[in-house]
Write a protein that binds this DNA or RNA. Structure first.
Length: 570
RNA sequence: CGGGAAGUGGCGCAGCCUGGUAGCGCACCUGCUUUGGGAGCAGGGGGUCGUGGGUUCAAAUCCCGCCUUCCCGACCA
């Protein structure tokens, strides 16, 4: 392709609203443009990269025996009612009516549609199956952000496995796990496969593929010593035991004028250290007021509460709700004597005695609280969020917390959707069986942004050859110079004939502009054809990633470059 | 949805406080010169100042409403 004929609108300045490096650079280098919040147009260069990412994903899915489908993006509401997600999902799903006032949705994922198709299977002989597609998903995100990293309309490779039993699911799950690691390796993304919360998708096992990046939105706890790693929504650390003094015969109320926080109570004369306090959080779980209690110096992780309680929707209670029900303001709350609300207790409180907590009366606290004795029917679960430096649950070494972009996620789904859609096959004994499903996703545009995020420098993007918009660019510095333009044209032709995905920069611009543009766009190899080297019969080969330049004779250049590129392809 | 910021030509910004009919850099068009790291000179085109209302002789500027975008928190590929 010729640059002079192409639409590659590069910008010297990035739009003011772009902050993430991938966002700024993809806009500046002419890959994407925003249409409105969360919806981006892929320009020709952007689509080339997007296609290459999708091709890599597709080839690895093919390699594990997945069959590609293309399903509708618009679904009848009925399908989502059958799975229960019409009510469950809420505002994140785009919903609309057709001309007959029938409810329809824009698919945010395709479990329902694939499961509906799977209902055509009738024998165990039809299993196992792995079905995938690369399709646009729509999600009315509360907050689109960071360019392609979080959008409302995006291409996702989603695949679904159907197996007769758990062992089959395990095999499909592991096959995807391996395939995903290969995909991210080919994208030159360093991913961590981490234990994750299954969240709203349901199911029991899930693994996320995380790319470390400050612009990510997830935190991963990682142990460098033993390799333990998990999303903080799921990660656990060991909590050193605390030696409690003997308890009082019963909780004792004492005045604490003005004390509203854990810290204030820790400093208060007659108070207690944070790790000897019980923190009481009032949350609304699916509309029901509930208490979550933790050690005073521990943080509640909302996802853990959601997973542990099974609630679909969680929010902190408002001050008004709290006062109406508990009779005190936030800051003086406690679970002692509360018997009409569900109480979720963090494991770290188990067995603790002689603790201090709010009395549900402003300016009063209780001391001498013995948890098992004084708090009625708590449901024990892991609720606390791990912090950096805490001892690893496996080996005891300090954990690190790393900010990450979630690039892929695989789930063991279970039978929720196959059951809802009436998928049933007869097994070898003639018994009806509901196949078990797995669900596996990679966001194509997000992966592209993650590559941009981790492959750039001050000059611009720096694509790995596997997904670069072009593998090489021939930059003819002075078009007016016959010998340069002739040599450049020949080289461009030879490289193209040798199968190199090549761009020819034949624009009549000053050399500085052209060189800066190729660097901004991030093409891995630049062949510079200019008077200086050409006088000796040479052209220059510059590698974008390293800036290294070597001289090659005009005659040998094409073959040498093609060889070099072939060696780097994955 | 809670908190913060911002909407002036394609991009980046100034002008607003103290109202007087819009300006700068980059980009763009024409000509000449220039040509190995974002050229120079000369000429030129392009803006309902997000939007609706109000105040005023007069509004980009002051007041009120709305819309949109971005950033920080709760959700996800």
């Amino acid at each position: 392709m010729r640059w002079s004929d192409s639409f590659i609108p590069t910008l010297r300045d990035a739009p003011a609203e772009a902050e993430a490096a991938s966002h700024r650079l993809l806009v500046r280098a002419g890959f994407i443009r925003q249409l409105h919040s969360g919806h981006y147009s892929l320009l020709p260069l952007g689509l080339r990269v997007h296609n290459k990412v999708a091709d890599i994903v597709r080839s690895e899915m093919d390699a594990i025996g997945a069959q590609e489908f293309l399903l509708p993006a618009m679904h009848p509401a009925d399908l989502w009612r059958r799975s229960g997600r019409w009510d469950l999902v809420g505002a994140e799903m785009f919903r609309l009516q057709d001309r007959n006032d029938a409810d329809v949705v824009l698919g945010m994922t395709h479990e329902e549609v694939f499961a509906a198709l799977a209902a055509e299977m009738s024998s165990y002989r039809d299993l196992p199956q792995i079905w995938n597609q690369i399709q646009t998903k729509f999600r009315d995100e509360p907050r689109p952000r960071s360019g392609l990293l979080r959008v409302r309309e995006f291409m996702m490779k989603d695949s679904y496995s159907f197996d007769l039993d758990e062992a089959g699911l395990d095999a499909a799950f592991d096959a995807h796990w391996e395939a995903y690691l290969r995909i991210f390796e080919r994208l030159d993304l360093e991913v961590m496969d981490v234990q994750a919360s299954s969240g709203a998708m349901g199911g029991d096992a899930s693994v996320e593929f995380m790319v470390a990046s400050p612009v990510g939105e997830d935190d991963v706890a990682r142990c460098d010593a033993c390799g333990y790693r998990a999303n903080v929504e799921r990660a656990r650390a060991s909590v050193p035991p605390i030696d409690d003094p003997p308890s009082l015969p019963a909780p004792e109320q004492f005045p604490t004028p003005g004390v509203r926080t854990i810290d204030q109570l820790a400093d208060f004369d007659g108070g207690a250290a944070a790790d000897r306090q019980i923190k009481t959080m009032v949350m609304v779980l699916d509309g029901e007021l509930s208490l979550a209690i933790l050690r005073g110096d521990h943080q509640l992780n909302l996802q853990k509460l959601a997973d542990g309680s099974g609630a679909a929707e969680i929010r902190p209670a408002t001050a008004a709700e709290i006062t109406a029900r508990l009779g005190a303001d936030p800051g003086s709350l406690g679970a002692v004597g509360v018997s009409d609300l569900p109480i979720f207790a963090d494991e770290a409180l188990r067995g603790r005695r002689c603790m201090t907590t709010g009395a549900n009366e402003d300016d009063w606290h209780l001391r001498g609280v013995d948890i098992e004795r004084d708090i009625s029917n708590p449901r024990w679960m892991d609720l606390r969020e791990v912090g950096a430096g805490e001892p690893c649950i496996v080996c005891g070494q300090p954990l690190g917390i790393v900010r990450c972009i979630e690039a892929g996620h695989i789930f063991k789904l279970g039978r929720k959707y196959s059951e809802a859609m009436g998928v049933s096959v007869l097994d070898a004994d003639g018994e009806a069986r509901t196949p078990i499903m797995g669900s596996y996703g990679i966001g194509i545009g997000r992966a592209m942004a993650a590559v941009a995020e981790t492959h750039h420098d001050e000059k611009g993007l720096c694509w790995p050859i596997s997904v670069a918009p072009f593998e090489a660019v021939v930059a003819i510095l002075d078009l007016a110079d016959e010998s340069q333009s002739r040599a450049g044209e020949v080289l461009y032709q030879e490289l193209s004939d040798l199968g190199v995905d090549c761009l020819c920069d034949d624009r009549e611009l000053r050399p500085g502009v052209k060189l800066a543009d190729t660097e901004l766009v991030g093409i891995p190899f630049r062949i510079t054809v200019g008077a200086r080297s050409l006088a000796q019969g040479n052209v220059e080969l510059t590698e974008r990633a390293t800036g290294e330049t070597v001289l090659l004779t005009v005659e040998e250049a094409a073959a040498a470059i093609a060889g070099k590129i072939a060696a780097q392809r994955s």
